[in-house]
Simulated assay, not measured.
Amino acid sequence: MPHLSVHVLESDLAGRETTLIRRLTDAVVTVYGEWARGLVDVKLIGLPPHRWGIGGAPAQAPAPSVTFGIKEAAFSRPDSDEIIARLIAVVTDAIVDVFGERVRDGVTVELVAGVAGRTGIGGVVVAS
């Protein structure tokens, strides 16, 4: 299941939540296919400006940051380089569609592997 956690300033997020969830879900579906739509899990984390720091000081206008959790196996597929590049591109485009072109150069998308046997759902270890 693709998990996306988005950190963004609360003031930038307010009123855009539904659109952002929809655009991020659509972006993932363009790479994985329609079968994945019901599995995309998006968490929006709005931060007040004084709780986001860069370089030892509160950030002035940070671009959204996305942590994208996917199964570790995605990184060992023969087409992994292409899939990773496409996911980063479509997620960045979705963020830009919602927040505007001004954020593009600062959007961070970090793909994080969910390792089999190190994740649990409902109190049970997930083996694959």
Rank of each mutant, 00 (worst) to 15 (best):
L4W: 01
D93C: 03
V31C: 04
R104A: 03
A36R: 13
V126N: 06
A113E: 11
V8P: 00
R118M: 13
T119D: 09
A116M: 11
V29W: 02
P78K: 08
I70F: 02
R16N: 11
G122I: 05
L87S: 02
V42W: 02
A36W: 05
V112I: 15
P78L: 10
V98S: 00
L4F: 07
E72S: 12
T30D: 11
G117T: 04
V40D: 00
V90K: 03
L9A: 09
S11V: 11
D12K: 10
G100Y: 08
Y32H: 07
D79C: 08
L111W: 08
A85K: 15
G69T: 07
V42G: 03
D97A: 09
H3D: 08
T30N: 03
V8F: 00
G120K: 04
L87E: 08
V126M: 08
P58F: 09
A127N: 12
F75T: 09
P78N: 06
L44M: 08
V124G: 01
E34D: 15
Q60E: 15
T19K: 13
V40H: 00
R22M: 06
G15T: 04
E72M: 09
T92Y: 01
S80D: 12
L39C: 07
V40G: 00
V91T: 09
E72I: 05
A127S: 13
K43N: 11
A61M: 12
I95G: 00
R77H: 13
A73Y: 09
G56V: 12
W52T: 10
L20Q: 02
R77S: 12
L13N: 02
A73D: 14
Q60D: 15
D26A: 09
P2D: 04
T92R: 03
E82K: 14
V90Y: 04
R23C: 05
R118C: 10
L20W: 01
S128G: 10
G53I: 08
P48C: 04
E17R: 09
P62Q: 05
R104T: 07
G46Y: 00
I88D: 07
H3K: 10
V66T: 13
H50P: 05
A116R: 14
S76I: 13
